[in-house]
Design a protein around this nucleic acid. Structure first.
Lengths: 146, 146
DNA sequence: GATGAAAAGACTAATTT
DNA sequence: AAATTAGTCTTTTCATC
């Protein structure tokens, strides 16, 4: 990827609502030239979209946890990710190498909700769980050095 | 939080570049009313900002891993998060309850880079590490149900 | 708080270099 | 690939309800 494109992506990661005019000023390009490049970055899938960053606390989701998941029956076909997709407390679902099969990142309001969520996950996907509760988050979703 | 504000936040989480005009149409409010509400949501810290969502693969970061971290000397004052802040391969840093003290989420290009990153983390923060490599990501940064 | 109108500014597409 | 132009739409501000 070109240096100019990297710069544009970096600026948009830092401020997803930056105008094309400002992007142009920051990169030394004309408005339409920037716009064209951004459109290409979107089409190539480098930029997947734009999102408002919401403070989970402010929205009542003050408990974050990582849940490692292992199937009760390791020989069964693995459709765990699909089965869990409907649970929207699950923010992320990664298949991993190691002792367990998946790592989930979840957000709930209270410990009781976490308890209920765990039993839902276990019964829905047929898995055992190991939960690591987040105490505090120093940083999160830091932009990658592109 | 009000129903209307929730709706606005939801729309902006799904599309961070949505115009105030479109937000107004979607919520039945006037452009300026929406604008005012969004500004308040930003000021109250509910909306922390806006970002372009970048595909890590497209940007050459195809290896994701979770690193659990434990200090060599548990009695030393804990400045691990601060020490690690300068490493920008670390996307997230959570202090957690459980056997280990921190969970880090990192992204690198290659296994060799992961190896180098691990030794940097160990020496910089004085910690032992346990690494779980991500094989595939079913979903990630799914918007919370607000 | 919400609205409406008007000025300033941003976006888009067609054209040219 | 980038700049320019011109038309359209959006943002922003301000006065008003």
């Amino acid at each position: 990827m070109e240096e100019l494109d990297r710069h544009i992506v970096e600026l948009l990661v830092a401020d997803g609502r930056m105008s094309y005019t400002d992007l142009g000023k920051a990169t030394g390009l004309s408005t339409s030239a920037v716009h064209q490049r951004v459109r290409r970055l979107e089409q190539r899938g480098v930029i997947r979209g734009y999102a408002a960053i919401v403070d989970p606390e402010a929205v009542g989701l003050s408990l974050t946890a990582f849940i490692s998941v292992k199937p009760f029956d390791p020989s069964a076909p693995d459709d765990i990710a699909d089965r869990l997709a409907e649970i929207n407390e699950i923010e992320a679902c990664h298949s991993v190498a190691g002792d367990e099969n998946y790592i989930l990142k979840v957000r709930v309001a209270t410990p009781i909700e976490l308890e209920h969520l765990l039993s839902r996950i276990r019964s829905l996907a047929g898995v055992s769980t190991r939960t690591t509760v987040v105490l505090s988050t120093a940083y999160e979703s830091r932009p990658p050095r592109i």
